[in-house]
């Protein structure tokens, strides 16, 4: 008997290892794994007064970005967010901003105001229950997730290698110089081509999302 269970144990360990490898990649995110089915959401109110659910969207790629009005990293990156949405106009890509902070200055009325002021060209949804943030393990703003046609998470993290931070004088500065690695753009193109993202996860950098309780 003892002679026989060892190969089974070895096989079981190998299966576990292979399964872990297939879903691996979430080096920084403590909740999601790259390759997993994207957590869904339903009936989240948008700043346009309508409600939206993930299955409503039929595009080949969906980009979720967690945002927060008050955050200097979000403000620093707004220009680049607006640009990437424009760059994919006409392609089968849907961009969705998500606000999950409980701060008054990040709540729905403030989201509407900010979006109008800076000209957000994407859907901007609010989840006061914070559940969508918890499901995605979103701890930073801005933090991006790219979902492919099968609605699997193929990328999580930064927009580029060089996030922009609003400076004291109101200007914004790329903290690592001019961006040269366009993680989200590359992940979207990969999703459109039915391929895995060249870089599947990066360490998100930005303001903290504060979750209540737990």
């Amino acid at each position: 008997m003892t002679l026989h269970w060892k190969p089974y144990a070895l096989a079981a360990a190998l299966v576990t290892l292979v399964a872990a490898t297939v879903l691996s990649g979430a080096k920084y995110n403590s909740v999601i794994q790259i390759g997993m089915k994207a957590p869904s959401f339903s009936n989240l109110p948008g700043i346009d007064g309508k409600t939206y659910s993930l299955p409503d969207f039929k595009e080949d790629a969906v980009v979720l970005v967690f945002l927060a009005n008050h955050c200097p990293w979000v403000r620093g990156g707004e220009k680049d967010l607006i640009k990437i949405v424009d760059d994919f106009k006409g392609k089968s890509v849907r961009f969705i901003g998500l606000g999950v902070n409980l701060r008054q200055d990040d709540a729905l009325p403030a989201m509407k105001e900010r979006a109008a002021k800076v000209g957000y060209n994407l859907l901007y949804l609010h989840d006061p229950t914070q559940e969508i943030g918890r499901k995605y393990g979103a701890t930073r703003t801005p933090e991006y997730f790219v979902l492919n046609k099968e609605r699997k998470v193929i990328y999580a993290g930064l927009l580029t290698n060089s996030p922009a931070l609003i400076q004291s004088d109101g200007s914004s500065r790329y903290v690592n110089g001019e961006p040269k690695d366009f993680y989200v753009r590359d992940a979207i193109n990969a999703a459109l081509a039915g391929k895995p993202a060249p870089v599947a996860e990066t360490r998100a950098q930005g303001c903290t999302v504060e979750y209540s309780g737990r």
């Binding site: 360490r203 998100a204 950098q205 903290t208």
Partner: peptide, 16 residues
Amino acid sequence: ENITQAFEKLDLLGIP
């Protein structure tokens, strides 16, 4: 340190 590197070296996603 450069901010990105500071977080990497501290092995931290965010603050506080």
